[in-house]
Nucleic acid binder design. Structure first.
Length: 358
DNA sequence: CCGTAAACCATTCTTACGTCA
DNA sequence: GCTGACGTAAGAATGGTTTAC
């Protein structure tokens, strides 16, 4: 589990997707449902559709995949639906979303266009290039030397934050996407190993402020459209590629954590089913033994087995089978009489309360 | 069918941190 | 208590692949 970082006050309105999630809980009463696609190869084999609703843990945002059609590939196999009760609803993150605005598809919201919007009010502007670096970057991209100038104590968040924004690539290490982004390219740590003096190592990590802001953004949308990406990059003074990569890695972490949760749940299911199987085997042996000792036992037609309305089990006693069946039939609603085998209730001849039914 | 963009995935690499001699 | 080597977890970044359009 991760600690959530909070920014600003805690009185902000919950995010839209959380409201949606709560509606789902209210309407369906499902807190956790999971489908497993079985029988198909490749990625569909492990296709999982997870909706973990109202979970305060930050790895719960898979529901946001609904925003993006990519993850909606239908499972090829027959899905196995598993449901869990909803977790105790905890007030969703206490973080403020002040200033976090998302550009719509038509670009109506220009979150990053103004220096007064969003993080700059919290001091992100301090991470802009120092004057020397800006000067160096005026005609060309900032050289590694500029980053070396500002390198300071790694324990200082502010200083590292500033440094993060001052590390730029020398200009030849960009990927295709970096090139296409047209942004000043920050150096990767790999490239930075070949420093001028070979002694300094550039910081790779994003600052806490940047990560927190990205985290908040991820809670809002776990995928980005190009405009959102650009706006975030502009707000955080990062390359769009960095924002893209951060979201990709964040989705991967979310998926990994969810997979771990699913694995634990399936393990418990497996244990339960194993126990059920063991119990049924034992029951079958007892029935066979009983049949051997009393050949007339279990000669009743299936239509005489009646569902007990209280425990939803077939009513029966260890007394004379015909009498028990007839009394049970007359004592219950005839509509509960079981005649099919497709949904045949379990038969517990030795106790009214099924094992483990507590 | 082909090209492109976006997302995913596996992997590498860096950094921070804990442990221990 | 301090220090450096070492191991490890977390996260940033990369290249290849898949998928939708």
């Amino acid at each position: 589990m991760e600690l959530e970082l909070s920014l600003g006050d805690a009185s902000s309105k919950p995010f839209a997707f959380m409201e949606k999630a709560h509606r789902q809980v209210a309407n369906k009463g499902l807190g956790f449902s999971m489908g497993l696609g079985l029988g198909s190869a490749g990625r569909d084999q492990e296709e999982q559709k997870i909706h973990e609703v109202a979970d305060d843990d930050d790895d719960d945002d898979d529901g946001e995949d609904d925003d993006d059609g990519r993850d909606q590939r239908p499972s090829m196999g027959l899905p196995l639906q598993l449901d869990l009760l909803p977790l105790a609803p905890v007030p969703r993150n206490q973080a403020s979303h002040q200033g976090l605005t998302w550009p719509s598809d038509n670009g109506s919201s220009e979150a990053g266009s103004s220096g007064n919007v969003g993080l700059p009010a919290r001091g992100l502007d301090v991470n802009r290039l120092p004057s020397t670096a800006v000067t160096a970057a005026a005609g060309e991209e900032v050289e590694d030397g500029a980053a070396a100038e500002v390198e300071s104590s790694p324990n200082s968040a502010a200083s590292s934050f500033q440094m993060d924004f001052c590390i730029y690539r020398g200009g030849n290490g960009g990927t295709k996407r970096d090139f296409e982004s047209g942004e000043a390219e920050r150096t990767s740590s790999r490239a930075s190993d070949e420093d001028d003096n070979g002694l300094t190592r550039k910081k790779l990590r994003l600052s806490k402020e940047q990560s927190a802001f990205l985290e908040e953004s991820f809670k809002e949308h776990n995928t980005l459209n190009p405009k959102q990406k650009l706006a975030l990059a502009k707000q955080l003074n990062l390359r769009p590629r960095q924002v893209e990569v951060w979201f990709q890695n964040r989705r991967a972490r979310t998926k990994l954590k969810q997979t771990e949760v699913d694995c634990e749940y399936l393990k418990r299911c497996c244990e339960t089913l194993t126990e059920e199987n063991r119990r049924l085997h034992k029951e079958l042996q007892e029935l066979r033994a009983l049949k051997t000792s009393n050949p007339f036992y279990m000669q009743l037609p299936a239509t005489t087995l009646t569902m007990c309305p209280s425990c939803e089990r077939v009513a029966a006693t260890s007394t004379a089978p015909s009498a028990a069946a007839s009394t049970a039939t007359t004592a219950t609603d005839p509509s509960t009489t079981t005649t099919t085998t497709a949904n045949r209730p379990r038969f517990y001849p030795f106790s009214h309360q099924p094992p483990g039914a507590s």
